[in-house]
Write a protein that binds this DNA or RNA. Structure first.
Length: 198
DNA sequence: CTCTCGATGCACT
DNA sequence: GTGCATCGAGAGA
Protein backbone atom coordinates (compact mmCIF):
# COMPACT_ATOMS: atom_id res chain seq x y z
CA UNK A 1 0.00 0.00 0.00
CA UNK A 2 1.12 3.56 -0.58
CA UNK A 3 2.89 5.56 2.10
CA UNK A 4 0.40 8.37 2.11
CA UNK A 5 -2.94 7.25 3.48
CA UNK A 6 -6.16 8.98 4.33
CA UNK A 7 -9.47 7.96 5.91
CA UNK A 8 -12.28 7.64 3.39
CA UNK A 9 -15.58 9.37 4.15
CA UNK A 10 -18.29 6.88 5.21
CA UNK A 11 -21.28 6.18 3.00
CA UNK A 12 -23.56 7.99 5.43
CA UNK A 13 -21.80 11.24 4.51
CA UNK A 14 -23.34 10.99 1.04
CA UNK A 15 -26.82 9.92 2.18
CA UNK A 16 -28.04 13.47 2.75
CA UNK A 17 -29.45 16.15 0.55
CA UNK A 18 -27.19 16.78 -2.42
CA UNK A 19 -26.75 20.51 -1.85
CA UNK A 20 -25.50 19.99 1.73
CA UNK A 21 -23.06 17.33 0.60
CA UNK A 22 -21.77 19.61 -2.16
CA UNK A 23 -21.07 22.28 0.44
CA UNK A 24 -19.40 19.89 2.87
CA UNK A 25 -17.18 18.26 0.29
CA UNK A 26 -15.15 21.46 0.26
CA UNK A 27 -11.91 20.79 2.12
CA UNK A 28 -12.11 17.03 1.59
CA UNK A 29 -9.43 15.17 -0.32
CA UNK A 30 -9.93 13.48 -3.68
CA UNK A 31 -7.36 10.67 -3.72
CA UNK A 32 -6.19 8.81 -6.82
CA UNK A 33 -3.87 5.82 -6.35
CA UNK A 34 -2.20 4.49 -9.49
CA UNK A 35 -0.83 0.93 -9.51
CA UNK A 36 -1.20 0.85 -5.72
CA UNK A 37 1.78 3.12 -5.31
CA UNK A 38 1.57 6.51 -6.98
CA UNK A 39 -0.64 8.84 -4.95
CA UNK A 40 -2.18 11.87 -6.61
CA UNK A 41 -4.55 13.97 -4.57
CA UNK A 42 -6.14 17.36 -4.24
CA UNK A 43 -8.27 19.24 -1.76
CA UNK A 44 -11.73 19.93 -3.16
CA UNK A 45 -12.22 23.69 -3.50
CA UNK A 46 -15.16 23.93 -5.92
CA UNK A 47 -18.32 21.81 -6.30
CA UNK A 48 -21.79 21.92 -7.85
CA UNK A 49 -24.96 20.07 -6.86
CA UNK A 50 -27.23 18.32 -9.40
CA UNK A 51 -30.48 16.69 -8.28
CA UNK A 52 -33.15 14.58 -9.98
CA UNK A 53 -35.70 17.42 -9.98
CA UNK A 54 -33.19 19.87 -11.42
CA UNK A 55 -33.58 20.69 -15.15
CA UNK A 56 -29.80 21.14 -15.46
CA UNK A 57 -29.11 17.61 -14.19
CA UNK A 58 -28.43 14.59 -16.37
CA UNK A 59 -30.92 12.77 -14.14
CA UNK A 60 -33.80 15.15 -14.84
CA UNK A 61 -35.31 13.16 -17.71
CA UNK A 62 -35.08 9.82 -15.97
CA UNK A 63 -32.71 6.89 -15.82
CA UNK A 64 -30.59 5.89 -18.78
CA UNK A 65 -27.50 3.83 -19.46
CA UNK A 66 -25.32 6.93 -19.10
CA UNK A 67 -26.75 8.33 -15.88
CA UNK A 68 -27.77 5.14 -14.07
CA UNK A 69 -25.01 5.54 -11.46
CA UNK A 70 -26.75 8.72 -10.27
CA UNK A 71 -29.81 6.61 -9.50
CA UNK A 72 -27.84 3.97 -7.60
CA UNK A 73 -26.42 3.87 -4.11
CA UNK A 74 -24.64 6.94 -2.72
CA UNK A 75 -20.87 7.18 -2.32
CA UNK A 76 -20.01 6.01 -5.82
CA UNK A 77 -18.31 7.89 -8.65
CA UNK A 78 -20.29 9.16 -11.63
CA UNK A 79 -17.83 9.90 -14.43
CA UNK A 80 -19.07 11.05 -17.81
CA UNK A 81 -17.52 12.14 -21.11
CA UNK A 82 -18.39 15.56 -22.52
CA UNK A 83 -17.58 17.82 -25.49
CA UNK A 84 -15.68 15.01 -27.18
CA UNK A 85 -12.63 15.71 -25.03
CA UNK A 86 -13.25 15.77 -21.32
CA UNK A 87 -14.29 13.63 -18.41
CA UNK A 88 -16.15 15.08 -15.43
CA UNK A 89 -16.07 13.54 -11.96
CA UNK A 90 -19.07 13.46 -9.61
CA UNK A 91 -19.81 11.83 -6.27
CA UNK A 92 -23.29 10.31 -6.05
CA UNK A 93 -25.08 11.93 -3.11
CA UNK A 94 -28.75 12.30 -2.31
CA UNK A 95 -31.30 12.20 0.44
CA UNK A 96 -32.86 8.70 0.63
CA UNK A 97 -36.16 10.24 -0.48
CA UNK A 98 -34.65 11.40 -3.77
CA UNK A 99 -34.26 9.17 -6.83
CA UNK A 100 -30.94 10.60 -8.01
CA UNK A 101 -28.30 13.21 -7.26
CA UNK A 102 -24.61 13.94 -7.63
CA UNK A 103 -21.97 16.51 -6.79
CA UNK A 104 -19.73 17.68 -9.62
CA UNK A 105 -16.17 18.38 -8.47
CA UNK A 106 -14.95 21.40 -10.44
CA UNK A 107 -11.56 22.22 -8.91
CA UNK A 108 -8.86 20.90 -6.62
CA UNK A 109 -5.88 22.32 -4.79
CA UNK A 110 -3.09 19.83 -5.55
CA UNK A 111 -1.71 18.06 -2.46
CA UNK A 112 0.11 14.82 -3.34
CA UNK A 113 1.96 13.99 -6.55
CA UNK A 114 2.13 17.53 -7.86
CA UNK A 115 5.36 16.82 -9.76
CA UNK A 116 3.78 13.75 -11.33
CA UNK A 117 0.76 15.74 -12.47
CA UNK A 118 2.89 18.51 -13.92
CA UNK A 119 5.17 16.06 -15.70
CA UNK A 120 2.27 15.18 -17.95
CA UNK A 121 1.08 18.73 -18.39
CA UNK A 122 4.11 20.58 -19.67
CA UNK A 123 2.52 23.94 -18.98
CA UNK A 124 2.13 23.08 -15.32
CA UNK A 125 0.78 26.06 -13.44
CA UNK A 126 -2.06 26.92 -11.08
CA UNK A 127 -4.56 25.73 -13.63
CA UNK A 128 -3.49 22.07 -13.56
CA UNK A 129 -6.51 21.01 -11.47
CA UNK A 130 -8.70 24.09 -11.95
CA UNK A 131 -11.78 23.00 -13.89
CA UNK A 132 -13.74 19.72 -14.11
CA UNK A 133 -12.00 18.59 -17.29
CA UNK A 134 -8.56 19.59 -16.08
CA UNK A 135 -8.71 17.83 -12.75
CA UNK A 136 -9.77 14.50 -14.26
CA UNK A 137 -6.87 14.75 -16.68
CA UNK A 138 -4.40 15.61 -13.91
CA UNK A 139 -5.55 12.65 -11.79
CA UNK A 140 -5.96 10.23 -14.69
CA UNK A 141 -9.66 9.78 -14.07
CA UNK A 142 -11.64 8.29 -16.95
CA UNK A 143 -14.69 6.25 -17.81
CA UNK A 144 -13.13 3.19 -16.17
CA UNK A 145 -13.80 4.89 -12.84
CA UNK A 146 -17.52 5.30 -13.43
CA UNK A 147 -19.33 3.45 -10.66
CA UNK A 148 -16.29 3.02 -8.41
CA UNK A 149 -16.85 3.00 -4.63
CA UNK A 150 -15.48 6.21 -3.10
CA UNK A 151 -15.85 5.05 0.51
CA UNK A 152 -13.06 2.46 0.49
CA UNK A 153 -9.35 2.81 -0.16
CA UNK A 154 -8.70 1.94 -3.75
CA UNK A 155 -7.78 3.59 -7.03
CA UNK A 156 -10.14 6.49 -6.32
CA UNK A 157 -11.72 7.67 -3.10
CA UNK A 158 -12.56 10.78 -1.06
CA UNK A 159 -11.10 11.29 2.42
CA UNK A 160 -11.18 13.63 5.36
CA UNK A 161 -8.63 16.40 5.11
CA UNK A 162 -9.35 19.97 6.20
CA UNK A 163 -12.23 21.79 7.81
CA UNK A 164 -13.21 24.90 5.90
CA UNK A 165 -14.56 27.65 8.10
CA UNK A 166 -18.11 28.68 7.22
CA UNK A 167 -16.90 32.19 6.50
CA UNK A 168 -14.78 30.83 3.67
CA UNK A 169 -17.57 28.94 1.92
CA UNK A 170 -19.31 30.95 -0.79
CA UNK A 171 -22.40 29.89 -2.78
CA UNK A 172 -22.77 31.11 -6.38
CA UNK A 173 -24.70 30.26 -9.51
CA UNK A 174 -23.53 27.22 -11.43
CA UNK A 175 -21.24 27.46 -14.45
CA UNK A 176 -21.52 26.26 -18.03
CA UNK A 177 -25.19 25.26 -18.00
CA UNK A 178 -28.17 26.65 -19.89
CA UNK A 179 -31.03 25.46 -17.68
CA UNK A 180 -31.82 26.43 -14.08
CA UNK A 181 -28.97 28.90 -14.04
CA UNK A 182 -30.42 30.77 -11.12
CA UNK A 183 -29.90 28.08 -8.49
CA UNK A 184 -27.05 29.00 -6.08
CA UNK A 185 -25.70 25.46 -6.05
CA UNK A 186 -22.02 26.09 -6.77
CA UNK A 187 -19.79 26.19 -3.74
CA UNK A 188 -16.26 27.53 -3.63
CA UNK A 189 -13.54 28.13 -1.06
CA UNK A 190 -13.15 31.87 -0.82
CA UNK A 191 -9.85 33.32 -2.06
CA UNK A 192 -8.50 29.93 -3.11
CA UNK A 193 -6.49 30.40 -6.28
CA UNK A 194 -7.38 26.97 -7.65
CA UNK A 195 -11.09 27.75 -7.99
CA UNK A 196 -11.94 27.86 -11.70
CA UNK A 197 -12.48 31.22 -13.32
CA UNK A 198 -15.35 32.50 -15.44
C1' DC B 1 -30.89 6.33 -39.40
C1' DT B 2 -29.45 11.49 -38.98
C1' DC B 3 -29.03 15.70 -36.31
C1' DT B 4 -28.10 18.48 -32.39
C1' DC B 5 -25.54 19.93 -28.63
C1' DG B 6 -23.34 19.65 -24.19
C1' DA B 7 -22.07 20.09 -16.05
C1' DT B 8 -15.12 22.17 -21.33
C1' DG B 9 -10.73 23.95 -22.42
C1' DC B 10 -7.76 26.22 -25.40
C1' DA B 11 -6.34 29.22 -29.12
C1' DC B 12 -7.02 33.42 -30.94
C1' DT B 13 -8.72 38.67 -31.70
C1' DG C 1 -14.30 39.07 -25.87
C1' DT C 2 -15.26 34.93 -29.88
C1' DG C 3 -14.49 30.37 -32.36
C1' DC C 4 -13.99 25.67 -32.40
C1' DA C 5 -12.11 20.64 -31.75
C1' DT C 6 -14.33 16.36 -30.94
C1' DC C 7 -17.70 12.47 -29.92
C1' DG C 8 -21.27 10.05 -27.47
C1' DA C 9 -25.96 10.44 -25.65
C1' DG C 10 -30.38 11.60 -26.57
C1' DA C 11 -34.06 13.10 -29.49
C1' DG C 12 -36.56 12.81 -33.49
C1' DA C 13 -37.74 10.74 -38.13
Amino acid sequence: MPKVEYDPLPRAFYARDTVSVAKELLGKLLVRVIDEKIVLSGMIVETEAYTSDDPASHAFKGISKRNMVMFGDVGYAYVYFIYGNHYCFNAVAKDPSMSAGAVLVRALQPIDGIDFMQKVRVRGDDRITSGPGRLTRALFIGKEHNGIDLTVKGPLYIAYYANIDKEYIVATKRIGITKARDKPWRFIVKDNKYVSKR
